[in-house]
Protein backbone atom coordinates (compact mmCIF):
# COMPACT_ATOMS: atom_id res chain seq x y z
CA UNK A 1 0.00 0.00 0.00
CA UNK A 2 2.83 2.31 0.77
CA UNK A 3 4.82 1.50 -2.34
CA UNK A 4 2.56 3.18 -4.87
CA UNK A 5 2.65 6.66 -3.33
CA UNK A 6 6.35 6.20 -2.79
CA UNK A 7 6.92 5.46 -6.44
CA UNK A 8 4.84 8.47 -7.41
CA UNK A 9 6.80 10.55 -5.03
CA UNK A 10 10.12 9.46 -6.49
CA UNK A 11 8.88 10.28 -9.97
CA UNK A 12 7.70 13.65 -8.81
CA UNK A 13 11.04 14.35 -7.20
CA UNK A 14 12.91 13.35 -10.34
CA UNK A 15 10.59 15.52 -12.42
CA UNK A 16 11.13 18.56 -10.25
CA UNK A 17 14.87 18.06 -10.39
CA UNK A 18 14.74 17.77 -14.13
CA UNK A 19 12.57 20.86 -14.58
CA UNK A 20 14.06 22.94 -11.87
CA UNK A 21 17.70 22.30 -12.45
CA UNK A 22 17.69 22.07 -16.19
CA UNK A 23 16.07 25.44 -16.67
CA UNK A 24 18.76 27.77 -15.49
CA UNK A 25 21.38 29.29 -17.70
CA UNK A 26 25.00 28.91 -16.82
CA UNK A 27 26.06 32.47 -16.80
CA UNK A 28 28.42 32.97 -13.97
CA UNK A 29 30.77 30.90 -11.97
CA UNK A 30 31.27 28.42 -14.74
CA UNK A 31 34.53 27.06 -13.51
CA UNK A 32 34.73 23.90 -15.55
CA UNK A 33 38.20 23.45 -16.91
CA UNK A 34 38.87 20.85 -19.52
CA UNK A 35 40.25 18.53 -16.88
CA UNK A 36 36.65 17.67 -16.21
CA UNK A 37 35.93 15.00 -18.73
CA UNK A 38 33.68 16.94 -21.03
CA UNK A 39 33.23 15.12 -24.35
CA UNK A 40 34.75 16.96 -27.22
CA UNK A 41 32.04 17.67 -29.76
CA UNK A 42 33.87 18.16 -33.00
CA UNK A 43 31.63 19.43 -35.73
CA UNK A 44 32.71 16.62 -38.01
CA UNK A 45 34.83 14.16 -36.17
CA UNK A 46 37.41 12.58 -38.49
CA UNK A 47 37.56 8.80 -38.38
CA UNK A 48 41.30 8.82 -38.55
CA UNK A 49 42.85 12.21 -38.10
CA UNK A 50 46.28 11.09 -39.30
CA UNK A 51 45.11 10.21 -42.81
CA UNK A 52 41.96 12.31 -43.18
CA UNK A 53 43.80 15.61 -42.85
CA UNK A 54 43.36 17.34 -46.22
CA UNK A 55 46.07 19.73 -47.29
CA UNK A 56 47.47 21.25 -50.41
CA UNK A 57 49.97 23.73 -51.68
CA UNK A 58 47.67 26.60 -52.62
CA UNK A 59 47.79 29.87 -50.69
CA UNK A 60 45.81 33.09 -50.35
CA UNK A 61 47.53 36.29 -49.27
CA UNK A 62 46.42 39.87 -49.06
CA UNK A 63 46.23 43.05 -47.08
CA UNK A 64 43.49 44.98 -45.32
CA UNK A 65 43.52 48.65 -46.21
CA UNK A 66 41.85 51.44 -44.27
CA UNK A 67 40.54 54.66 -45.70
CA UNK A 68 39.24 57.76 -44.04
CA UNK A 69 40.00 59.35 -40.70
CA UNK A 70 40.16 56.80 -37.88
CA UNK A 71 38.13 57.60 -34.76
CA UNK A 72 40.08 58.74 -31.72
CA UNK A 73 40.94 55.80 -29.52
CA UNK A 74 39.44 55.88 -26.06
CA UNK A 75 41.92 56.17 -23.26
CA UNK A 76 41.96 53.31 -20.76
CA UNK A 77 41.42 54.31 -17.13
CA UNK A 78 44.21 52.21 -15.73
CA UNK A 79 43.97 53.96 -12.37
CA UNK A 80 40.90 51.84 -11.69
CA UNK A 81 43.35 49.25 -10.36
CA UNK A 82 46.80 50.21 -9.06
CA UNK A 83 48.15 46.82 -10.10
CA UNK A 84 47.28 47.74 -13.67
CA UNK A 85 48.55 51.30 -13.48
CA UNK A 86 51.88 50.08 -12.10
CA UNK A 87 52.62 48.22 -15.31
CA UNK A 88 52.18 51.17 -17.65
CA UNK A 89 54.21 54.32 -17.81
CA UNK A 90 52.47 55.76 -20.86
CA UNK A 91 48.81 56.27 -21.56
CA UNK A 92 47.08 53.17 -22.87
CA UNK A 93 44.28 53.33 -25.42
CA UNK A 94 41.67 50.80 -26.35
CA UNK A 95 42.95 48.71 -29.30
CA UNK A 96 39.67 49.02 -31.17
CA UNK A 97 40.53 50.77 -34.44
CA UNK A 98 44.30 50.58 -34.87
CA UNK A 99 45.50 51.95 -38.22
CA UNK A 100 49.08 51.05 -39.13
CA UNK A 101 51.64 53.52 -40.51
CA UNK A 102 51.18 52.04 -44.00
CA UNK A 103 47.46 52.77 -43.96
CA UNK A 104 46.38 49.24 -43.16
CA UNK A 105 44.06 48.08 -40.42
CA UNK A 106 45.31 45.98 -37.53
CA UNK A 107 43.34 43.31 -35.60
CA UNK A 108 41.33 42.07 -38.55
CA UNK A 109 40.46 38.39 -38.43
CA UNK A 110 40.68 36.78 -41.87
CA UNK A 111 39.48 33.23 -42.48
CA UNK A 112 38.13 30.88 -45.12
CA UNK A 113 34.38 31.10 -44.80
CA UNK A 114 33.29 28.77 -47.62
CA UNK A 115 34.96 26.19 -49.81
CA UNK A 116 36.10 23.64 -47.26
CA UNK A 117 32.70 22.01 -46.67
CA UNK A 118 32.83 18.27 -46.19
CA UNK A 119 36.45 18.28 -45.23
CA UNK A 120 37.47 17.73 -41.66
CA UNK A 121 40.56 18.89 -39.86
CA UNK A 122 42.01 17.58 -36.63
CA UNK A 123 42.77 20.14 -33.97
CA UNK A 124 46.46 20.98 -33.68
CA UNK A 125 48.31 19.58 -30.68
CA UNK A 126 49.73 22.95 -29.73
CA UNK A 127 47.69 25.29 -27.58
CA UNK A 128 46.69 28.85 -28.35
CA UNK A 129 47.37 31.29 -25.54
CA UNK A 130 45.29 34.17 -24.20
CA UNK A 131 47.45 36.16 -21.85
CA UNK A 132 46.21 38.80 -19.41
CA UNK A 133 49.08 41.17 -19.07
CA UNK A 134 49.07 44.72 -17.83
CA UNK A 135 45.29 44.44 -17.61
CA UNK A 136 45.03 44.01 -21.36
CA UNK A 137 44.40 40.85 -23.37
CA UNK A 138 47.26 39.57 -25.48
CA UNK A 139 46.42 38.98 -28.22
CA UNK A 140 43.42 41.23 -28.65
CA UNK A 141 42.08 39.31 -31.67
CA UNK A 142 43.07 35.77 -32.55
CA UNK A 143 41.79 32.48 -33.85
CA UNK A 144 41.62 28.94 -32.57
CA UNK A 145 40.53 25.75 -34.20
CA UNK A 146 37.55 23.82 -32.93
CA UNK A 147 38.82 21.44 -30.25
CA UNK A 148 42.17 23.18 -29.99
CA UNK A 149 43.39 23.81 -26.48
CA UNK A 150 43.16 27.45 -25.40
CA UNK A 151 45.48 28.23 -22.54
CA UNK A 152 44.33 31.23 -20.49
CA UNK A 153 47.06 32.79 -18.40
CA UNK A 154 46.98 35.53 -15.79
CA UNK A 155 50.27 37.43 -15.71
CA UNK A 156 48.97 40.15 -13.39
CA UNK A 157 48.97 40.19 -9.62
CA UNK A 158 45.29 41.02 -9.58
CA UNK A 159 42.02 39.21 -10.18
CA UNK A 160 40.90 38.77 -13.76
CA UNK A 161 37.76 36.94 -14.67
CA UNK A 162 37.61 35.56 -18.19
CA UNK A 163 34.03 35.81 -19.29
CA UNK A 164 33.84 34.30 -22.79
CA UNK A 165 30.36 34.62 -24.19
CA UNK A 166 30.28 31.81 -26.68
CA UNK A 167 26.88 31.04 -28.14
CA UNK A 168 27.66 27.98 -30.26
CA UNK A 169 29.89 26.39 -27.61
CA UNK A 170 29.44 26.44 -23.88
CA UNK A 171 30.11 29.92 -22.52
CA UNK A 172 32.35 30.17 -19.50
CA UNK A 173 33.19 32.73 -16.87
CA UNK A 174 36.09 31.83 -14.67
CA UNK A 175 38.14 33.75 -12.19
CA UNK A 176 41.90 33.77 -11.98
CA UNK A 177 42.74 35.37 -8.65
CA UNK A 178 46.50 34.83 -8.62
CA UNK A 179 49.44 35.68 -10.83
CA UNK A 180 50.63 32.81 -12.97
CA UNK A 181 47.33 30.97 -12.86
CA UNK A 182 46.57 28.93 -15.99
CA UNK A 183 43.34 27.37 -17.17
CA UNK A 184 42.70 25.35 -20.30
CA UNK A 185 39.55 25.59 -22.35
CA UNK A 186 38.23 24.42 -25.71
CA UNK A 187 35.47 25.48 -28.03
CA UNK A 188 33.25 22.79 -29.48
CA UNK A 189 31.79 24.58 -32.51
CA UNK A 190 32.85 27.26 -35.00
CA UNK A 191 31.84 30.78 -34.10
CA UNK A 192 32.77 34.22 -35.46
CA UNK A 193 33.58 35.73 -32.99
CA UNK A 194 33.56 34.76 -29.31
CA UNK A 195 33.91 37.88 -27.22
CA UNK A 196 35.73 37.62 -23.90
CA UNK A 197 35.62 40.34 -21.29
CA UNK A 198 36.92 40.90 -17.80
CA UNK A 199 34.29 42.34 -15.46
CA UNK A 200 36.85 43.58 -12.97
CA UNK A 201 38.52 45.72 -15.62
CA UNK A 202 35.67 46.77 -17.87
CA UNK A 203 37.90 47.98 -20.70
CA UNK A 204 39.37 44.53 -21.32
CA UNK A 205 37.99 42.69 -24.35
CA UNK A 206 39.33 39.95 -26.60
CA UNK A 207 37.80 38.40 -29.72
CA UNK A 208 38.37 34.77 -30.56
CA UNK A 209 37.56 33.39 -34.00
CA UNK A 210 36.68 29.74 -33.63
CA UNK A 211 37.09 27.98 -36.96
CA UNK A 212 36.71 24.35 -38.00
CA UNK A 213 39.94 24.40 -40.07
CA UNK A 214 43.45 25.83 -39.79
CA UNK A 215 43.04 28.54 -42.49
CA UNK A 216 42.77 31.80 -40.57
CA UNK A 217 45.00 34.75 -39.75
CA UNK A 218 44.97 38.11 -37.99
CA UNK A 219 46.43 41.29 -39.49
CA UNK A 220 49.34 42.76 -37.60
CA UNK A 221 51.45 45.91 -37.90
CA UNK A 222 51.79 45.43 -41.69
CA UNK A 223 48.10 44.81 -42.24
CA UNK A 224 48.77 41.65 -44.26
CA UNK A 225 47.66 38.06 -43.94
CA UNK A 226 48.52 34.71 -45.48
CA UNK A 227 46.52 31.49 -45.57
CA UNK A 228 48.90 28.76 -46.77
CA UNK A 229 48.67 25.02 -47.38
CA UNK A 230 45.16 25.12 -48.84
CA UNK A 231 43.87 22.42 -51.16
CA UNK A 232 43.13 23.68 -54.67
CA UNK A 233 39.63 25.13 -54.94
CA UNK A 234 37.34 28.14 -54.86
CA UNK A 235 37.05 29.89 -51.53
CA UNK A 236 35.10 32.66 -49.93
CA UNK A 237 37.50 34.57 -47.71
CA UNK A 238 36.04 36.74 -44.96
CA UNK A 239 37.65 39.62 -43.06
CA UNK A 240 36.09 40.56 -39.73
CA UNK A 241 36.67 43.69 -37.68
CA UNK A 242 35.14 44.39 -34.27
CA UNK A 243 33.88 47.83 -35.29
CA UNK A 244 33.43 47.61 -39.06
CA UNK A 245 31.94 44.15 -39.37
CA UNK A 246 32.62 41.53 -42.00
CA UNK A 247 33.53 41.61 -45.71
CA UNK A 248 33.91 38.65 -48.03
CA UNK A 249 35.65 37.98 -51.34
CA UNK A 250 35.82 34.90 -53.51
CA UNK A 251 39.02 33.59 -54.99
CA UNK A 252 40.03 30.43 -56.90
CA UNK A 253 43.45 28.91 -56.44
CA UNK A 254 45.12 25.82 -57.87
CA UNK A 255 47.87 23.71 -56.39
CA UNK A 256 51.07 25.66 -56.03
CA UNK A 257 49.33 28.93 -56.83
CA UNK A 258 48.99 31.96 -54.59
CA UNK A 259 45.77 33.92 -54.84
CA UNK A 260 45.64 37.51 -53.75
CA UNK A 261 42.79 39.31 -52.00
CA UNK A 262 42.55 42.96 -50.97
CA UNK A 263 40.06 44.19 -48.37
CA UNK A 264 39.31 47.76 -47.56
CA UNK A 265 37.47 49.12 -44.51
CA UNK A 266 36.18 52.67 -44.56
CA UNK A 267 35.89 54.98 -41.62
CA UNK A 268 32.28 55.67 -40.69
Amino acid sequence: MASAPRAQFVTLAALVVAIGCGGGKPQEASAKSNTAARPLQLAQAPEDPATAQPSGSAAITGRVAFSGAPPAAERVKMDADPQCALQHTDAVHKPEVVVNANGTLKHVFVYVQQGLEGKSFAAPASAATLNQHGCMYEPHVFGVQVGQELSIVNSDATLHNVNCKATKSKPFNLAQPTKGMKTSKQFAAPEIMVKCVCNVHPWMAAYIGVVAHPYFAVTGDEGTFSLAGLPAGTYTVAAWHEKYGEQTQTVTVGDGETGSVAFEFKAQ
Binding site: E28, A29, L159, A175, P177, V200
Partner: peptide, 11 residues
Protein backbone atom coordinates in the same frame (compact mmCIF):
# COMPACT_ATOMS: atom_id res chain seq x y z
CA UNK B 1 27.54 40.48 -6.05
CA UNK B 2 29.16 37.50 -7.73
CA UNK B 3 32.55 35.96 -8.30
CA UNK B 4 34.46 39.23 -8.36
CA UNK B 5 32.72 40.59 -5.26
CA UNK B 6 35.82 40.48 -3.09
CA UNK B 7 37.76 42.41 -5.68
CA UNK B 8 35.24 45.19 -6.20
CA UNK B 9 37.53 47.72 -4.67
CA UNK B 10 37.52 51.44 -5.23
CA UNK B 11 39.90 54.16 -4.14
Amino acid sequence: CGLGHYRMRGY
